[in-house]
Write a protein that binds this DNA or RNA. Structure first.
Lengths: 139, 139
DNA sequence: ATACACCCTGGAGTTTACTCCAAGTCAATG
DNA sequence: CATTGACTTGGAGTAAACTCCAGGGTGTAT
């Protein structure tokens, strides 16, 4: 599979995939005799993992560490497991923050939608909302 | 409330809060006669909103836009509502990616934990996992 | 065999979101 | 009233993660 095809599949640019390979986010990719990248199934799985973890905000540094451990072989299995567990904790924590933001957003959207209908913008007193200039906001 | 206290409350640095104010992520903060920032309740709510939305990955550009609309007054209420709805869609999409990554991670962790116990590392054939060098991995 | 699209490398440049700094001001304390 | 420490500004610097580019090679269709 050419770099272009892999890029389409995972919605990244060729520059990004070459960059990932160069710095060790994925292991070296198989090449044609002419030196052109020809991603095999394993290569593609690494790309899938890298793009998936990256889009969940896992830092590149951690992915590099993971690939480094992987290349060292079987005596790094528990280290890899620990690395993933720590990464999981981080991501869970991030997701918790996302949920908090979503809650705040939902509240604001509800208030604004009501305001669009009624013409009155009313925030709860302790709602941690953007109620600066509250008097002016109420028509 | 001093900048330092607000920073402790929301776990950011004074530089960050001053930066937010300078570029319009939050409106201008109340000052003492001497010119020192003295955050009142509204100011603090803006900080809370900004830090909350930022930690969910909402780009600064959008927050600036939101504050700009807010400053323009009541005729931007529906625009603000639309902005928040779009932001919510983005964040929901991001969270979906987080869930996908968590699923992949959980699978890998399960396999590694089993390997630590049994000494055999076995990936499902179509598990999109880092099975490159599969032969070597099985002891 | 030559045109054309695509690929290669190494290195420089860009974007986003801070983060640091110098030079100066403010305010509480001894 | 001087010292100490926190605050101010504008501007420069930094980190992470790409993104772009020049100069050149590959491969396939006519």
């Amino acid at each position: 599979m050419t770099i272009k095809e892999v890029c389409q599949k995972y919605n990244v640019t060729p520059d990004t995939l070459r960059y990932y390979e160069r710095i060790g986010v994925i292991p070296e990719v198989h090449r044609t005799p002419g030196g052109i990248r020809d991603y095999n199934e394993e290569d593609i799985k690494w790309v899938e993992t890298a793009t998936c973890f990256r889009s969940a905000g896992m830092p590149i540094e951690l992915l590099i560490e993971y690939v480094k451990l992987f290349k060292e072989g079987n005596n790094t299995i528990s280290a890899r497991c620990e690395l993933l567990k720590e990464a999981r904790e981080r991501i869970l924590e991030e997701r918790r923050k996302y949920d908090e933001a979503l809650e705040k957003m939902n509240y604001k959207i509800r208030v604004y939608e009501k305001a669009v209908k009624t013409g009155f913008l009313e925030w709860d007193d302790d709602s941690n909302c953007c109620s600066y200039n509250k008097q002016k906001e109420k028509e």
